[in-house]
């Protein structure tokens, strides 16, 4: 498979895969908290748009789901160790739950499932591939997990066609906003030097050294 970053997004985490350094743990946790803050910030900006979209055609609400999946994608792409995606997404969910969102603690279940969706894709590739396609697959997978969970928790009475539409929108949004968006975000962060201790930072410097 060839995609723009196949040659350069393959740096594995230093040491063994499970040899979490302090900076790995602290960064995954801090990204989780920062996304929790960002979720809250977006809420202030987005509440209006969300309601309009949902009232027009409810399954399209899935389209707005992508942003909430991005924490896991970014955590996974940056730290590149098993569990980092789940940890980042669950911590972000915990923070938004503590701030009082409309889903209560079920947001923790959502966070766990979304993180697992990302983790599944990264694990299948043995934590060796972190390119654009991988990121989009991970985002889409997170969207599928979350959508299926919402079928049972929020929309069990929707007709199957609409539920599938919701799933499709959610996966699409996951791939584009969380996957593509997360990948672009990590690239941008690598350019700032803030990721020098991680794979994306090292790859950035390799690209510019050659």
């Amino acid at each position: 498979m060839s995609h723009p970053s196949a040659s350069t997004s393959t740096t594995t985490a230093p040491g063994g895969l499970m040899a979490y350094r302090t900076i790995d743990i602290v960064t995954a946790a801090t990204l989780g908290v920062a996304f929790g803050v960002a979720f809250w910030g977006w809420n202030q900006l987005y509440l209006l748009i969300a309601n309009i979209s949902v009232f027009a055609f409810p399954p399209s609400g899935g389209l707005l789901g992508g942003p909430w999946l991005i924490a896991g994608v970014v955590g996974g792409l940056v730290v590149r160790r098993p569990g980092a995606a789940v940890a980042t997404e669950v911590i972000a969910a915990f923070v938004s739950g503590m701030l009082g969102n409309q889903w209560g603690f079920s947001v923790l279940v959502s966070g766990l499932l979304e993180g697992l969706g990302v983790e599944l894709v990264l694990a299948v590739l043995l934590y060796r591939r972190f390119g654009l396609v991988v990121a989009m697959l991970a985002g889409a997978c997170a969207g599928v997990f979350e959508s299926v969970y919402e079928w049972y928790s929020y929309y069990p009475d929707w007709d199957l066609g609409y539920r599938l539409a919701h799933l499709g929108f959610f996966a699409l949004s996951g791939a584009l906003v969380a996957g593509l968006g997360g990948w672009v975000l990590v690239r941008g962060l690598a350019r700032t030097g803030a990721l020098d201790a991680f794979g994306p930072g090292r790859e950035h410097h390799q690209r510019h050294a050659s």
């Binding site: 302090t22 960064t27 920062a34 910030g41 900006l45 968006g181 975000l185 962060l189």
Partner: peptide, 28 residues
């Protein structure tokens, strides 16, 4: 508004990552 949120989020993450590096140094 989307672009504005993206710009804020990016800068927030840079700030968070810088903090995380300093915090790891202090913790280690």
């Amino acid at each position: 508004t989307f672009g504005y949120a993206a710009s804020l989020t990016f800068a927030l993450l840079v700030s968070a990552l810088r903090g995380a590096t300093q915090m790891s140094i202090a913790m280690d």
